[in-house]
Nucleic acid binder design. Structure first.
Length: 560
RNA sequence: UGGGGCGUCGUCAAGCGGUAAGACACAAGACUUUGACUCUUGCAUUCGCAGGUUCGAAUCCUGCCGCCCCAGCCA
């Protein structure tokens, strides 16, 4: 259920917005999602995207801008711009005409900087980065004024223009705001507004050799776009006084309100661009879209539907408390969504051959199966059945544990949508491994029930030996063995889960799966949810990813 | 020993002076041709701690305690 359907605002940000609307402070709400195009989006960004775009959807007529915060040409690339757009769209959001780039404001930003200089509120500082750091003071001691702090307006203007003209080397000078070197808030100790970087920008090319910093760019970009509520994460709270300072000292068209909320932390995963990059670079995963990655592209490839991500973001809420969300909640949202739409099919991951000795050799038949028992409108399909089939190895125990009600010597089970079979003989190879089962079937039980009313305790899935298709199946587990790998700092890779990926080959799937298309969701009955791997699957070589397992209470009973 | 933020069930999270929502997880049971789904039931005498105000406090006041963020010419 969306926020709107719930009626009342249910987080402090929506409460603020509702209040502003009631007071008539704004005609319409305008939010923005401002990624820096220096990496791929991840689940943490999804929270911000759902918040910003969600709020705009709930307050029609409102809008949410997609703005690339591309002020640092040394880290940003066009490639990321495209992937970010794709990910936002995939999540189900639309920025309409409102696609912006901070780099498009470079000229205006420059003018505003000159205005600050003219007001005596900014100055060109010749100190080196090291010197600036050294004179910034510490958390408990005030900083020292730069010796260049009292330059005249004319000199500052001249120097700044020459910075822009490319007369000075990288790092030789910066433009700083003149605020308060003794402030308890370090962000107010004459922050840098412009730095010299003779680097070409992915959009503005070589037009500029000075680039504005985030602190200067963000509030002005927000104001120029008429953003009403600028939502960001908690670590920017300390920057708010600076954000407000710029807006108060410059003739900007609006004064957006910055509101901070806690970023998302998810158990058994890392959500930091730097760490995700490290996982990719060190080869711990196959790439940004590895299905084990918490990136949007990884999640998509894993087979999580966008609806599940949105519902997850709704459920985790928005607050200022730093929290660690249980991955079980994400998994629940994925299952909840997939349970509704995944087509049910049968696939045997670890095949054990079963020969039905009393079924006529050479004969075969087509049995009818439901595509979704709870949704008959999703139709039926035919599945082949004959004398030789495969069942799951786990569905047979030579010496059944208590409460195990699948197949065992002398026991009878139901083959889903087919017949009852009874295990008569266990065939082993020289090393004692079970290689085949000999069973008999009861022709009277076609469809799954016995005319004499006898019941079986278990129903197992199966696949026809001759007419099943072979496939590779990839099973995923959490990437880390510890719930908070981030807490380990840079050694977070020490707790990588060695079993996070299990590749099964020789799996046998019912023939209908030969027509599986990328983007389709399936439930392999009794196993979990699967989808075709969009990258590695080929018509002659299907590869399926397991998106999520089914809840398994039996696993709890047997304790494994 | 500066500044900012936060502390309500195992995990998220409502609550905004009137006597602790909901979700996930967990537990028990029902149903079941997926040990799935669905359904039912249980799950904070208590809100970091200690005082105070009040007829009444998770909500107001005071003082402690704990955790997170900030010393990039990153965002």
């Amino acid at each position: 259920m969306s926020q709107t359907e719930l009626g009342a605002p249910n987080d402090f940000i929506r409460a603020i917005i509702a209040e502003d609307l009631v007071r008539g402070k704004h005609e319409r709400i305008v939010t923005r999602f401002p990624p820096e195009p220096n990496g791929y989006l991840h689940i943490g960004h999804a929270k911000s995207i759902c918040l910003n775009f969600g709020i705009s959807q709930e307050n029609t007529p409102a809008r949410c801008h997609l703005r690339f915060d591309d002020t640092n040409p040394t880290k940003e690339e066009q490639e990321y711009v495209e992937s970010i757009k794709e990910d936002v769209r995939w999540l189900g959001f639309d920025w309409g005409e409102h696609l912006y780039f901070a780099s498009d404001y470079f000229a205006q930003l420059y003018d505003y900087a000159e205005q600050l200089i003219n007001q005596g509120k900014a100055y060109v500082c010749d100190l080196s980065a090291d010197q600036i750091r050294a004179t910034r003071g510490t958390l408990t001691e005030p900083g020292q004024n730069s010796p260049y702090r009292e330059r005249s307006v004319a000199e500052n203007l001249d120097l700044f223009r020459r910075m822009r003209a490319g007369e000075f080397a990288d790092g030789s000078r910066v433009l700083r705001a003149k605020i308060d070197m003794a402030s308890g808030n370090l962000n107010l100790r004459d922050p840098v507004l412009y730095r010299i970087m003779h680097t070409s920008h992915h959009r503005s090319g070589d037009q500029w050799c000075i680039y504005p910093t985030y602190d200067f760019t963000h509030p002005i970009s927000d104001a120029l776009e008429g953003i009403t509520h600028s939502l960001c994460t908690l670590e920017f709270a300390d920057h708010r006084p600076l954000y407000d300072w710029f807006l108060a000292n410059l003739p900007v068209p609006a004064h957006p309100r910055q509101i901070e909320f806690a970023r998302l932390n998810l158990g058994y995963t890392v959500v930091s661009k730097r760490k995700l990059l490290q996982l990719v670079n060190e080869g711990h995963v196959a790439g940004w879209d590895d299905p084990r990655m918490p990136t949007i592209s990884g999640i998509r490839r894993r087979g999580y539907p966008p609806e599940a991500i949105r519902s997850f973001c709704d459920k985790i809420g928005v607050a200022k408390k730093e929290s660690l969300v249980d991955v079980a909640l994400l998994e629940h949202c994925v299952r909840e969504e997939l349970n509704q739409r995944a087509l049910r099919v049968m696939g045997v991951l670890n095949p054990l051959k079963v020969v039905i000795s009393n079924y006529p050799a050479g004969r075969s038949e087509e049995l009818t199966a439901q595509n979704h028992p709870q949704q008959p409108e999703l139709g039926q399909r035919q599945i082949p059945f004959s004398r030789e089939i495969f069942i799951e190895r786990d569905d047979f125990m030579e010496e059944p544990a208590k409460k195990f009600f699948r197949l065992a010597p002398g026991r009878e089970v139901r083959l889903r949508y087919a017949y009852f079979i009874k295990c008569e003989e266990v065939i082993k190879d020289a090393s004692g491994e079970i290689v085949e089962l000999r069973c008999t079937y009861d022709p009277q039980t076609l469809g799954g029930s016995a005319p004499d009313g006898r019941k079986v305790k278990g129903t197992i899935h199966w696949v026809d030996a001759a007419r099943s298709i072979e496939a590779e199946v990839r099973l995923y587990d959490r990437l880390f063995t510890e719930e908070s790998p981030e807490k380990r700092g840079r050694s977070f890779t020490d707790c990588l889960n060695p079993h996070s990926l299990q590749i099964l080959s020789g799996c046998r799937l019912e023939p209908s799966l030969a027509a599986a298309a990328p983007g389709q969701y399936f439930q392999f009955e009794r196993q979990g949810y699967f989808c075709l791997d969009p990258r590695d699957a080929r018509p002659d070589r299907p590869v399926f990813n397991r998106s999520a397992t089914l809840r398994d209470t039996w696993k709890k009973v047997k304790g494994s």
